[in-house]
Design a binder for these strands. Structure first.
Lengths: 222, 222, 222, 222
DNA sequence: CATGAATGAGTTTTCATTCAT
DNA sequence: AATGAATGAAAACTCATTCAT
């Protein structure tokens, strides 16, 4: 699934082609849906940008909606388990929290299409995600690590007690997602590009400070 | 919401009807575009929910896009000058900043359609906002008051120096907008409704704390 | 009707205004129909370019078709009796014929809208002209003078006998009308502007030569 | 009319069907546009008279305008190279010129739709022809043969020197086109059908005489 | 698996005309 | 005589989807 095996000689070539075709369609479709929204994307356009034909899209995905759902699911799969890549057990809670925030920051920055798809899915009231089989697997990875750090910090008397892991996750997500999701109106109104590489480090540190100052505020000082 | 009568008293009835027709179309269209996105909204549907006909939409707005732009502009007009409603000069910088954050929080909470329209406009790369005549008037109101408070706080040695007004505005906006814009995917994944009235005060205070702890962190303590 | 009387003081001003309004509408409508054809012209556009409103067009002309017919009739009235302006009785047949051809040439050159309206009316199979009350008065003026000259020339043994007045009229019309009616495709294909003022005299003489050489060919030489 | 089979024998049936569908649409559309003008023609009507649907028109031609342009281009292609069909080198200049005039006469008589389309295109200021890729190929065929005959005639001292090939082409075109383009107004006013078969030979000879008498007038007599 | 052609149902847009005042 | 608002019918155009080969 992760390493791309060249496979034993004589392996079903056709199947591999099929997989490649599917993947190509998904790539193009991801770009199109992310760029134009669900209703705005065109099956014709997706097909035209693929090396295959429209018929193949229906062969593999059944419908435009089916294709969209596949795109959405693959995009969510991409961030699933993101936090597991992070080994923070050896770090103190504050450092661990900052590392997690920065990891999220970095990941979101490098996956703008995912963020736009999330915006689009919200426009559609998450109706596709809500019925997706991948849904149950999404919550835990996102907050488990965070919850662990938070618990450790509290036990150490470092973090405030009046927020839970979901609240912290929300703050981190809001900050990271806003930069991409609202980039264009922000730029139009304020003439500032939130994704300007020159400002990247500033925002990255800002996020860490924001979360940590908040979590550690007044704690242990009283 | 507050029916501000247009034109001088005694103005021709017809004109008042026209204004009413226009406004009614805009109301319905706002709901439709906010609910389904630009491409997903249907002119037919908007017309059907109005007391007038589809023809009138074209009479007043020229095209679906013209209608959308009118909706978007009116929505932005609604928040323009929001901050001016706030008299914070008599408050110390910290209280003033919290008041501003809470005002923004309250306003965004009560204008979900606006937030969804902003998301939608970002999906379209802000192409309509970018060329709108109202654009130039949007930046100042949003950051002038905030900038003033920030400056006062710094002069008093209370606020950190490494962020500007736009950065703070971004944090507040990100927090407030996320609750509405990403409500559905968040709810689907984590089974938590960010707009649950029972959690409203918690998030309101959380935003104030977040901003203030960040701004005042370490300052004057060194 | 011809001289514009300032009218007795106290004369019905309203009626004069009405006449002026009618005339203004006809002027604009002539330009629009000539420029875009019957189906291509827009009642809205005509009204917009007038100082009056669309309602007036319907008040005066009943319908788009009524307006078009009025435009067409007025245009034809403009050339009616053209030939009567010409006193050719004192000229010998050849000179008289050339004078008539040149008069036609000059008139057509200065009335491009009329020619375009004729083209447009032909596109519509002359259905409006065919039922117009002005139709009966159009034939005689156009060929009576020409017929007289032709008869004189024949009696004098100068002109050939195998053509009648309508044939000659057709040749003159074809030449004059072509310059305006087919100006644009001719220019596009051959890069020659048939209405270039520098070529005007050339074509004028050419028409006279064409008609006269044809009419006098071989006659009396046998 | 002469069904020139497209593509090599054995070409996929589907493609041949496509070509047939395209051609059928073009045939009907030619009739409709020529009959009602660009704005007056109805895509629905064209589709209804076809064995396919309106959707196919857009599939093949993209828009009403695209269809019109295709019709116009095909019509012009039809006369392209007309003159090449004529071998006039063995004829003396006078006979050659008459043969060319008569060929043009015959061709225009048998292509009334083309002439009406030219009128229509002129109503539109040749805007479509002007940007057509076929434009560059239209000039030469129309005047090259004519220019050659004219030059031969001059060298032989038979033709006048004060006109060029384009002038002669204009006279021939004006005569031939007028009969069809202005047929209806002419008939309405003068009650003479310029396309009456009984008058065909008369006009055909008349055109030849007209051109030749003009070209040979006075030459060599001085 | 692959492909161009085809399609039906919708969606936006237009336009001549009329109404209320 | 004049005006802006309103309208219904029709016109152009689009799109996801399926068919024939």
């Amino acid at each position: 699934m992760s390493a791309q095996p060249t496979g034993p000689i004589g392996a079903p070539e056709r199947q591999r082609d099929a997989e490649r075709t599917r993947a190509e369609i998904l790539d193009i479709a991801t770009a199109e849906f992310a760029d134009r929204g669900y209703a705005g994307a065109r099956v014709d356009e997706i097909a035209a940008r693929t090396r295959t034909t429209k018929r193949m899209i229906y062969y593999y995905f059944g419908s435009k909606e089916g294709l969209y759902v596949a795109v959405l699911e693959r995009a969510y799969q991409g961030i699933r388990g993101l936090e597991q890549q992070l080994d923070v057990d050896h770090l103190d809670p504050a450092r661990a929290m900052r590392a997690l925030a920065e990891l999220t920051f970095d990941h979101h920055e490098s996956h703008p299409a995912f963020i736009r798809l999330v915006s689009i899915e919200n426009i559609h009231h998450a109706e596709h995600l809500r019925t997706s089989p991948i849904l149950p697997g999404l919550a835990a990875p996102a907050v488990d690590v965070l919850g662990g750090i938070l618990a450790r910090g509290r036990r150490a008397g470092l973090f405030r007690e009046d927020v839970d892991a979901l609240d912290v996750h929300m703050v981190i997500s809001a900050f990271c997602i806003f930069r991409t999701a609202n980039r264009h109106t922000f730029q139009a109104i304020f003439d500032r590009d939130l994704l300007d590489p020159d400002r990247r480090d500033h925002y990255r540190r800002m996020l860490g400070d924001l979360v940590l100052e908040y979590l550690t505020a007044h704690v242990g000082r009283a």
